[in-house]
Write a protein that binds this DNA or RNA. Sequence first.
RNA 1: GGCCUUGUGGUCAAGCGGUUAAGACGGCGCCCUCUCACGGCGCAAUCCCGGGUUCGAUUCCCGGCAAGGUCACCA
Length: 543
Amino acid sequence: MDYKALAERLLPGEYPSLASYEEKYPPRDLPKGAQVTRLAPSPTGFIHLGNLFAAIANERIAHQSGGILYLRIEDTDLKRKVEGAVEAVKNALRYFDIKFDEGAEIDGDNTYAPWYQRQRAEIYRAFVKHLIEIGRAYPCFCTEEELTKLREEQTAKKEITGYYGKYARCRNLSEEEIYKNLDAGKPFVIRLKSMGNPENKIKFRDAIKGEITVTENDQDVVILKSDGIPTYHFAHAIDDHLMRTTLVIRGEEWLASLPIHIELFDVLGFERPRYGHNCSLMKQDGDTRRKLSKRKDPELSLEFYRKEGYYARAVKVYMLTLLNSNFEEWYLKNPEKPLEEFKFTAEKMSKSGTLFDIDKLNDISKNELSKLSAEEMFDFLKTWADEFGTEAQKGYFEDREKMLKVLTLCMGIGGKKRRKDFTTASQAMDFIKYFFERPASYEDYRVEKETKKAILEGFLAKYDPADDSQAWFAKIKEIAAEHGFAAEMKDYKASPEAYRGSVADVAEVLRIATTGKANTPDLWTIQQILGEEETKARIGAAM
RNA sequence: GGCCUUGUGGUCAAGCGGUUAAGACGGCGCCCUCUCACGGCGCAAUCCCGGGUUCGAUUCCCGGCAAGGUCACCA
């Protein structure tokens, strides 16, 4: 068969030589050991935790080694395309401090552009044409229906499904048949003519999983779709070679197509990059675990964390603890050091599927948030409220001084005695609500109405905003004693039957009257911040 | 079903021939205390199963089993 003529018929016209591409996209001039990694999302606009997971690994490995992280958009499937998706990806990742050196819509070196696969169509075709010329790719005229039927037959016979061996009908078409189909204007795809044999096992070194065995590919996979756009597999081989990627970190779901990629790199004469296949994030669902799913699990979406007001660094720290098993220990020892100082390695990445643990994330969040200074916390909360808060919440920030007081005096932000009351901005806003809004409802008082009234009246009679916390509390004790409550906890504990209750019960009445809640930080401080007028008003209203 | 991957407490996991089998989260209890939170102390809980190899296996080998992934002109 005259492959040259066939290639010309299939992909007519002059294409740049393969050598010219090698020249145009030369090996990168980087220090020894520098890794070139990438993120290659399809532009669906949905960016999820799994993306972040991989992004952090890629980013760390690239930048730690003095290499490059770039962004490539895999838009070969039109159905997946969503307007504004690239912006969304960039924004979401910027929130988590992932910075690209090059790539789509990135201000950087464009030597290896274009970054959108659709704009690289000519490149792919040039290589496909070459494969046809050397007899390693061929046109296939099978229709979707025929392929479906084939698959059904194979399934029925319990054979392996796919286009391979004797089932690869178009592989053995005569020259005459091919041209007849072409003349008839039949649409076609280009398939790889595989030379592999699944009996052969290849030992392969995965950067994450270590030594794995790979079965040789024998599927004549489609490399160029009927619209002249390559499939993922082919685009991956071309792009990662020409963009000079050295390490491909990607999800485990790609492991199964590794044999295809290996054959593709080999037949194209490309040196293969290193691969690292990372585990996926799972979720417990009843008694099985499954991949986090877009439809069922809101926490998969990165948008979820922004809306809830998770602190970006906290999410990142959690990802890092899952990503590298020795990170957590390091971080415990070096809580003040920048995250970048941790030596990230692909080898330490987890091999098995990881259950996403929101409790752990929340714990990390509380810790991270408790490290902020009052100003940082102010900015963090305000930024969140401006975008996601209610009108009332936005108003909390108008009195900057008051908010700062709430944060420092009551929440212990920026001080030594840190509280860890909230994991997210939205929770924080809820928590400090009573400083800015009168409570709409009150938790149940545990004392009878008359007692409550008596306590509140007693307090109002003695209340002096100039009291320090000692003097203030002494008065609470007096009130307690006047109404048959133990002024000292010790006394109460020694003989509880001798009292109606303790000073704690008295304080609780005041606390609920002031804030609407039974549990709050130090009451005296709260009243100081609220001020005399407001404190009196609230106590009065509660009677 | 074929192929591939993975199997240490509820979760994330360290360990890689001899350990009282780390640590963190969560749970429970105690202390501190006007409540909550913080902090401190403590408790319970694990090597998937069966064969080997070995003086000795969580660690090595084989076989099961289980879980996950994948089998498109989607990525």
